[in-house]
Structures are given as C-alpha cells and as structure tokens.
Amino acid sequence: MRGKVPLRVRILTALAAEPDWDSITPDQIIEVREAQARKRGSALGRLVTSKPDRGARITTRTLDLPERRLDVRVYRPEQENSALPLIIAFHGGGFLVGAPDQDDWLLSHLAANLPAVVAAVDYRLAPEHRIGAIVQDAYDAAVRLAESAPELGADPGRIALLGSSAGATLAALTAIHARELELTVRTQVLINPQLDWTDRLFDYPSFTENADAPSPTPAFCRAMVRLASPEPSDRTTFSPLLTGDLTGVAPALIQAAGLDPLEDQAPAYADRLRQAGVAATLTRYPKATHAFLSMPGLVPAARPARTEILTHLHTHLLERPSVRSA
C-alpha cells in the first residue's frame, strides 16, 4: 500500500461482506444494489455519507429520451436565483452499482454554495445494459438537460461536468464530445477517475501497490470490465485516456486518491490533457481511498477536496469568484 487506510474505513470494511465478484450473477448484482441502497438509508449509512447541505433542496425529475426514461436527482439552492450555472454529475460504481444519492453531501453543497443547479443522472447499469448504452445515456441526458436549462433556472452557456470513478468516464467522454453534442462546457471535475477500460487497467503500478485497498478490489475490477464491456468489444472507444485527440477539451480538475488502485490513471490523463494544450489541475490526496467523497464521515480528506472543487467551479463558472468556508 502507498499509505495506511483510515481506521474507520478499515473497521467498516472488516464488518462488510464482499460479494464474490468473479462468480456473481445478474440477479445477485441487483441484490447488491438494493442492499447498498438500504445501507445508505440506515443510521450507519448516514454517518458514512454525511447529511446533505441544508441550503439545498433535492428533487427528482424524469428525462424522456429516445425509447427510455431516466431519473435525474436535482439539487438547487433554497434561495432561488435565475440563470445559475448547471453542473451535470455522474455517480461512481463501476457501471454495476451506485446511485446519485450517494453523492448528496458533495452535490448539495455545490448547489447551495456556488450556487448552482446540479443534475445527477441516474443512468442505466450493467449487466442489464452494456457500456455503449450507458455512455449514450450520458450524452443524451446532458443534451436534454442543456435544452431544459431555462426551465431549471440554469444557464446552458455555463455547464460543468462532474464524475467520480466510472462516472468520471462519462464526464470525460461527454467533455471530449461536447462540440458535436453542442454543449457549452466550461470545465470538468474528475474524482478518483476510471479512464482506461482496456486490459491495461491491471498494469498500472497503483493497481498492484494498492491491491489490498478496500475498494475497488481486483475482483470487482474484473467484474466491471467483464460485465459492462464483454468481449468482443473495442474498449479504447470508451477509454478517455486512450482518446486520440484531446485538443479543445474543457479545462479539468482531477483529484487522485493515494490509496486507490486506480490512482495512476489520474496523472496519466492530466499529462495527456496538458500535451493537447488543455489546462489540467491535478491534486493528490495521499490519505484518501477510492470513493472518498462519497464517504466523508470516514475519510477526512473529503472536506478539503470538496472545498477545492467549489473553488475550481467558482473560477470557471462565475465571473467573480467568492468561496464560503466549508
């Protein structure tokens, strides 16, 4: 390990039973999702994820897309404003698990304190749907949200994309294709990102050195690749890190977790962006585990990371930055 996992994370990991990801069935994955949702709603779960910001209201709306409907969790400041920036967010979970409400602590804070309208997309998951359909959900939802921005009280000319883990895949890909999607993306925020879906995923030094981290385990990584993008498929198509031309992509804030098996993908992508002339800020949180911004009750690094995100968004979405203390 590149450091010591925080005590509270170690205790919680010891108490939780890890599924057998190498042999898990589709029905069992659905059971895991349901169990995770129950945990997030429990008293212990609320201690892990922490409470939403009281300055934000949280509602759900439905997007009607071609041949499907997606729910979106919307965060807006209690004090109404007009033409707020629009942050489109994608949760993590390896495209197998996860839901927008796991990021309530972060997203409600951004909505209340930037302020902004934050829309977290509840995209489809594997193995019921393959990664191509999941990526299309991100593209179509982003376009529809931009179109309906005035209805939301948001400005379609000031969009930020935010994603963690596999959600960072969606944020980064949407940023790469923003021009053809006719989206005005000012910036992107990628948190402990998963950016390489090829077999190279297992070759980064961090994957070996942090293999004993509580998440994502090697077995989980094998499952997410196998179930979200089974052979034969060209996984470079969905790997932002392997995209040929990154010229003109929106400036990025990339946050790496020092105890994350995926850590090395963050500096690798920052280097690719800089080589393309894109401004990229890379920050490493050495005592953070993967998904640390979804469990601020366990990982102290979540609070300064959230403040950094707020400051970055102020700089790129508002004319005169002004940050309230976290």
Results as ranks from 00 to 15, higher is better:
1 M>F: 04
7 L>W: 12
26 P>F: 11
38 R>Q: 15
39 K>Y: 14
50 S>K: 13
53 D>R: 03
58 I>R: 00
78 E>I: 11
85 P>V: 14
91 H>R: 04
93 G>I: 07
96 L>N: 08
98 G>R: 10
101 D>W: 05
106 L>R: 07
107 L>V: 13
112 A>I: 10
117 V>C: 06
122 D>K: 06
123 Y>G: 14
129 H>Y: 05
132 G>S: 12
134 I>T: 04
139 Y>T: 06
143 V>S: 11
143 V>N: 03
145 L>H: 03
146 A>W: 03
148 S>T: 15
149 A>P: 07
151 E>Q: 14
159 I>K: 00
163 G>L: 02
163 G>K: 03
169 T>E: 05
172 A>K: 03
175 A>L: 12
175 A>H: 06
189 V>A: 11
194 Q>V: 07
195 L>T: 13
204 Y>M: 14
204 Y>N: 07
212 D>C: 02
214 P>E: 06
222 R>Y: 04
226 R>V: 00
232 P>E: 13
236 T>N: 13
238 F>T: 15
238 F>C: 15
239 S>Y: 09
245 D>E: 12
248 G>W: 01
254 I>L: 15
254 I>H: 09
259 L>N: 10
260 D>H: 08
263 E>A: 15
270 A>D: 07
275 Q>T: 15
280 A>Q: 04
280 A>S: 15
288 A>W: 01
295 M>I: 12
297 G>H: 01
299 V>K: 02
301 A>G: 02
302 A>W: 02
319 E>F: 04
